[in-house]
């Protein structure tokens, strides 16, 4: 195994946590500090009055920004850039959205069921114009259940590294290499949880199928939207978003 000794496992923990801190987009303290900053009733209705396509375009841009940070996270993970480029792309294509969904629990406030979006906190109603009430509800529910685990920043770092480095993604050319990296990251995560007496967290993490299902719901909704507004997607959606999802 590439990371056999305790020192090497500890170095990997440090690498993952540092990579995450450098690419987390918004610092946790800032997200917590902003919690009192809620969208006013007028601001919420202005979001609700937007056309479906404008709101989709906005969300596609916000999601793409978040994904760019996940790409940077991946690039800094020890071993990721040593994988062949096909596998780097397979892992990011399959995992970037899942990582964004996990990261979202930091931007979610369970006290009032709001999420930080474009500078303030708002609830599900903020996204009504998208016409995807069920998907938005599922994403909020997911954030709610994950935020109940009170994951530390280091735990989110290690957990999301494992969401990304998943040797079971179809289409990998060097599956063994990804397996080795995944195995090292599992050791690192377990080691960190042991050290902080948090092993109980492992059994409470959401099943992989839950993230997969949220991602496929997003793809389904995008397909419907793209069918109705092909020109909007073609002309106004970020190229990276289209590359990953459409």
């Amino acid at each position: 195994a590439p990371y056999a000794s305790l020192t090497e496992i500890e170095h990997l923990v440090q690498n993952v946590c540092k990579s995450y801190r450098e690419t987390c987009q918004l610092r946790l303290e800032e997200l917590l500090r902003q919690r009192a900053n809620l969208f006013s009733r007028e601001e919420v209705s202005s979001y609700q009055r937007k056309s479906e396509w404008e709101m989709w375009e906005r969300c596609a841009h916000r999601l793409t920004e978040a994904i760019q940070h996940v790409v940077e996270f991946a690039k800094r993970l020890s071993g990721f850039m040593e994988l062949c480029q096909n596998d780097q792309i397979i892992l990011l294509k399959a995992g970037a959205m899942e990582v964004v969904l996990v990261r979202m629990c930091r931007a979610y406030n369970a006290d009032n069921h709001t999420v930080f979006f474009e500078g303030k906190y708002g609830g599900v109603e903020l996204f009504r114009a998208l016409g995807c009430g069920e998907l938005i509800g599922s994403i909020f529910d997911f954030s709610h259940s994950l935020s109940a685990l009170r994951l530390s920043e280091d735990e989110i770092a290690l957990y999301t590294a494992l969401v990304l480095i998943n040797a079971n993604r179809p289409g990998l050319q060097e599956k063994r290499k990804v397996e080795q990296l995944q195995c090292s990251l599992e050791l690192a995560f377990h080691h960190h949880l042991c050290k902080t007496h948090r092993q109980g967290v492992l059994a409470q993490l959401p099943p992989k199928g839950r993230l997969r299902s949220l991602c496929s719901q997003h793809l389904e909704k995008l397909q419907v939207f793209q069918h109705l507004h092909p020109i909007v997607v073609q002309a106004a959606f970020p190229p990276l978003y289209k590359e990953l999802f459409s």
């Binding site: 790409v71 690039k75 800094r76 792309i89 990011l92 294509k93 590359e243």
Partner: peptide
């Protein structure tokens, strides 16, 4: 096929 992703990945390791 994954032009943007390729570019982002090749764009230095920082």
């Amino acid at each position: 096929k994954h032009r943007i992703l390729h570019k982002l990945l090749q764009n230095g390791n920082s």
